[in-house]
Amino acid sequence: MDILQLLLYGVVLGSIVALGAVGVTLTFGILGFANFAHGDLMAFGAYVALVAYTWLALPLWLALPAAVAATVALALLVDALVFRRFRTRRPIVLLISSFGVALILRSLIQIGFGPGTVLYSTRIQIAERFWGLRVKPDQIVIVALTLVLVVLLHLFLSRTRTGKAMRAMADNPTLARLSGIDTENVIRWTWAIGGALAAVAGVCLGLNSRLSPEMGWFLLLAVFAAAILGGIGRPYGAILGGYVVGICVEMSNLVLPAEYSPVVPFALLVVMLIVRPTGLFAGRSG
């Protein structure tokens, strides 16, 4: 029974990691660099929702779209102010500048909200019991929301002109440009989608545990592990990678003391890079 309970927690955590990993993998696929600020975009979204929920007293289902809108705007702003200027430089320049952006965002959150942890609500949630498993309503919302977003993302990538252009650009940027695709427009869409999913992931992370300025930074390793596991640059792989990482982290509680669970994504990452460096589904060189 314990195993099933942990599996369930793993699916919840996996949903959050998956939402983050899609953003990281899209950014990598389109722009060619690992965005270290992605975790802090998640934290930013979580704190915007906190402001909307506790200070503006909006219900959470309205605080979420507010967080999404603000995070998308932030991602586009950061691109215009920082990443856009380094577009033609080597990826390492972008990677380092994303470190800078990450530090700035995290510090801004600390200045605004202090270094401590915060909860969305101190109201105690009664866990429902299904077949002997404890499930909190928030956890159902997190998993359901993720599934809806994954379906929407799939429809966007497979059905729309912009979605196809995005996949084409991730596949072969030169050929995409030669085919007349407006690459700057695709880049804006990438940030918008990555930012939106990061905001949702951040809010879900806050709901699932608590908010802290480092919440996104701490999750970033798990998010990167998921993206690499899924074959970097592949959104569907990143989603699956997210669930693999989430489930492994929670399952590790069976054999490891809980304090060691942050090591699990790192271990997965190391094993993966040794055994199958292109990801479970063969990476982007494909």
Binding site: K164, D171, N172, T174, L175
Partner: peptide
């Protein structure tokens, strides 16, 4: 390209993860 000249490179001349149909869609983007 807009003048009516198209180029097929020797290598990496398709979008590998896109379906054949989608490759043509991008050609007509």
């Amino acid at each position: 390209v807009r003048e009516g000249v198209c180029f097929v490179p020797q290598t990496e001349n398709v979008f590998p993860t896109l379906s054949v149909d989608e490759n043509l869609d991008i050609g007509g983007f």
